Computed example of a mutant assay.
Amino acid sequence: MRHADHTRHADHTRHADHAEAAESRTAAEEWDDLYRENERKWSGSPNPALVREFPEPGPGTALDLGCGEGADAIWLARGGRRVTAVDVSRVALERGAAHAEEEGVADRIDWQWHDLAETFPEGTWDLVSSHFLHSWTELPRERILRRAVAAVAPGGTLLIVGHVEAPGGGRHGDHGEEGDAGNHGPHATELPTSRQVLESLDLPEGEWEVRRCEEEERTRTMPDGRVVEYTDTTLRLRRLPA
């Protein structure tokens, strides 16, 4: 799908039309159409929160949920990780695979198609990363993130980054995510704070350590010259060794 430069913005009216059309179309069709609007939808740069939390990714395995065009997956693979990159858009996955080939890390990334509302990759990983898992199509985000919890290996990390306040203000979301996260996009529902995300995961007592749980305010100048404000959430958890 997980995401001009690496800030996802477009016209609100156009996306209202997307939302209306989504009632009769699959999420995969909606996201494929969104990606086809541009030769490259996002910047190809990894999400800043991922770079901050893992400046030197190192060895191990990683699962990138909603990888989009693959910038995060490629960043992790360049750092030595073996990555499973998942998205609902086959168009995005094809672009990610082509970019990985150009970067010389194609053999370190397994690109998998999943509609996370229906299916989830099998296995466990040292890092499970979810950036801006938002969508204007139907998306059971809490259920997906609970499955992400179960996919973290003992001693591993779960990183969840999302919006709590959308560009321009208001807790209603938009398509202003950075990087190449998937299942992203405009939506009308309120978005949770990092603390609310943490509580929704229903983590077993004594099995997890909270490394970061906070909001971050940011500003960004858009290609059309607008300066927009964000409030994003970052939740970093470590599963204690067995």
Rank of each mutant, 00 (worst) to 15 (best):
V105P: 01
R95G: 08
A100M: 03
T84E: 13
S89A: 07
D87S: 14
D110S: 13
G104F: 04
D87A: 15
E103H: 08
A100Q: 02
A92R: 00
H114Y: 00
T84V: 15
G104V: 07
E102W: 01
Q112A: 13
A98H: 07
D107I: 04
R90Y: 04
E94W: 00
T84M: 09
V91Q: 00
L93H: 07
A106R: 12
G96R: 03
W111K: 06
E101C: 07
A85W: 07
V86T: 11
A106T: 05
H99W: 15
A100S: 06
R81G: 09
W111T: 06
G104S: 08
R78Y: 02
S89D: 10
W111L: 09
H99D: 10
R95F: 05
R108V: 07
V83M: 13
R108S: 15
A98T: 14
Q112D: 01
A85P: 03
V105I: 10
R81H: 11
G79L: 08
A85C: 12
W113S: 10
R78V: 00
V105M: 07
R95D: 02
A98S: 13
E103P: 01
G79A: 07
V105S: 06
V86Y: 05
D87V: 07
G96V: 04
Q112M: 13
L93S: 09
D87C: 13
R78E: 12
Q112H: 11
Q112G: 05
R82Q: 15
G79D: 09
Q112S: 10
V86P: 01
R82Y: 11
R95N: 04
D107V: 02
V86S: 05
R78M: 02
H114D: 00
A100R: 03
E102G: 03
A98C: 05
A85E: 03
D110Y: 02
R78W: 02
E101G: 13
E102L: 10
W113Q: 14
G80P: 02
G96D: 06
W113Y: 15
E94L: 06
R82H: 15
L93D: 10
W111A: 11
R90N: 13
E103T: 06
E94N: 06
R108M: 13
W111S: 08
V88W: 14
V83D: 09
S89Y: 02
E94V: 07
G79S: 08
Q112N: 07
R90F: 04
D107Y: 01
R108L: 15
H99Y: 12
